[in-house]
Amino acid sequence: MQRRTFLAAAAAAVIAAGAGAMPGRAEDPETLKVALLPDENASTIIQNAQPLKDYLEQALGRDVELIVTTDYSSMIEAMRFNRIDVAYFGPLSYVLAKSKAAAIEPFAVGVKGGSPTYQSVVIANPAGPVKAIADIRGQTFGFGDPASTSSHLIPRALLAGKGLTAGTDYAFAHLGTHDAVARAVQAGQVQAGGMSEEIYKKLVERGTIDPAKVVVLEESKPIPNYPIVMQGELSPELKAQIRAAFLEMKDPAILKSFRAEGFAATDDQAYDVLRETAQILNLDLAKMN
Results as ranks from 00 to 15, higher is better:
Ser151Pro: 01
Leu153Val: 09
Leu153Cys: 06
Pro155Ala: 12
Arg156Lys: 14
Leu158His: 11
Leu159Thr: 02
Gly161Asn: 11
Gly161His: 07
Lys162Arg: 14
Gly163Ile: 04
Leu164Glu: 08
Thr165Cys: 00
Thr165Glu: 14
Thr165Ser: 13
Ala166Ile: 09
Ala166Trp: 06
Gly167Phe: 05
Asp169Trp: 01
His174Thr: 07
His174Val: 03
His174Cys: 09
Leu175Gln: 06
Gly176His: 10
His178Ile: 01
Asp179Met: 09
Ala182Thr: 06
Arg183Cys: 04
Gly188Cys: 10
Gln189Cys: 00
Val190Thr: 10
Ala192Tyr: 05
Gly194Ile: 13
Glu198Ser: 13
Tyr200Ala: 01
Glu205Asp: 10
Arg206Ile: 00
Gly207Phe: 10
Ile209Trp: 05
Ile209Thr: 02
Pro211Asp: 03
Pro211Trp: 04
Lys213Gly: 04
Lys213Ala: 13
Lys213Ser: 12
Val214Glu: 02
Val216His: 01
Ser220Gly: 01
Ser220Glu: 01
Lys221Pro: 07
Ile223Phe: 04
Ile223Cys: 07
Tyr226Trp: 14
Ile228Asn: 00
Gln231Leu: 13
Gly232Lys: 08
Ser235Trp: 13
Ser235Pro: 14
Ser235Ile: 13
Glu237Leu: 12
Lys239Asn: 11
Ala240Gln: 15
Ala240Thr: 15
Ile242Arg: 00
Ala245Ser: 14
Glu248Asp: 15
Met249His: 08
Met249Glu: 05
Met249Asp: 05
Lys250Tyr: 06
Lys250Leu: 07
Asp251Tyr: 08
Asp251Val: 08
Leu255Arg: 10
Phe258Val: 09
Phe258Gly: 01
Ala260Thr: 12
Ala260Asn: 05
Glu261Ala: 12
Gly262Asp: 01
